[in-house]
Design a protein around this nucleic acid. Structure first.
Lengths: 174, 174
DNA sequence: AGCGGATATTTCATCGGTGAAGTAAACATA
DNA sequence: TATGTTTACTTCACCGATGAAATATCCGCT
């Protein structure tokens, strides 16, 4: 497995060379994009590694966590799609997978019979409560040597970036 | 399409509730992880959107860019796997796709006949030079209202995080 | 020279995710 | 109350990515 930092070094060289050939390129910004993508992938892999023993998928985990974090522990496929940024198709599969393991139940809505009500079960809550804590040490390690100010800055900058991305996608794929 | 910022708001609420139930959770750090993942996905989608008209994949684009940025414009599947953090299997497919479009060539290595030498073609170089500039305005927009200091900070913090991730994965999936 | 283990790449089976079409219920309105 | 439109979810067919096994070559050792 290639180290992230060596990939970053190579990326730096690559961007330097490309921006020599194409000087109009916004090199600093492009570099930040690539950095974000690479670090994002890194966290993804780390998360996948922690989820593997529980035979959970990233999207299954996220869906389960959304349900867990809701006051009433329930939602609908459509809502979950929104919050988890997933396609409806995929949510069907995710719900199938979680229901088969008894972590959630699927029932018909009384108010609107088109709707399906998804609810986390007691077993689902127990499962989350058991699988979450083992992740904590590794999350702490990820942010080792980050000062409180560092964390505040990172938080602020990422949110600002998110706002800009929203404005971008409004214009193009609305 | 759900806005990133509303997803982030919901995530904030979710983390608050979960950390009330499980107070040992490193809430600040977990939040940063989720933020990073969400912003990463956002950039991914933005990139995919820009690549679609050129019928390119994220990994195909990255591979092509690596070749473009090398002084001699050539590499091998194994090396490209490392730099692009891709499985060898997938690199075969990527090379097939790019070769079919005449953007790269595949030849046998003289020194080591197990190796395949992949080289970007003149058409490949022209293609990159043509497709890259239209992306620049959108990259600039992504970092609108980021001061030079903001960018420096973000760069520094992401690299530090990458270093920590490397140390994590060394211990576990080495 | 010849054998065993390591390395480089491809093939195959499978999984997770997506777009397009299908089904069913609700709503709006005439 | 009949009809057309919208909404909610599912099914189906396909694509991109991955792990395990197959193939071919190279390298070290005797």
């Amino acid at each position: 497995m290639a180290k992230l930092t060596t990939c970053i070094d190579l990326m730096d060289e690559g961007i330097d060379r490309v921006s020599q050939i194409i000087p109009t390129m916004p090199a600093v910004e492009a570099r930040l994009c690539r950095l974000l993508l690479m670090v994002g992938e890194g966290i993804d892999q780390e998360l996948a590694f922690k989820l593997k023993p529980y035979k959970l998928n990233h999207s299954e985990f996220l869906t389960l966590m959304i349900l867990y974090s809701r006051p009433d522990g329930s939602s609908t496929p459509g809502e979950l799609c929104e919050f988890a940024t997933q396609g409806a198709t995929n949510m069907t599969r995710i719900a199938n997978a979680l229901a088969r393991r008894g972590l959630i139940t699927r029932g018909a809505s009384e108010a609107d019979r088109r709707r399906v009500v998804i609810r986390i079960t007691a077993a689902g809550r127990r499962f989350v409560k058991e699988m979450l804590p083992p992740m904590f040490p590794r999350i702490d390690t990820m942010f080792q040597s980050f000062s409180a100010t560092d964390k505040r800055h990172l938080d602020r900058l990422l949110r600002k970036l998110a706002g800009n991305l929203d404005r971008l996608s409004e214009h193009s794929h609305p």
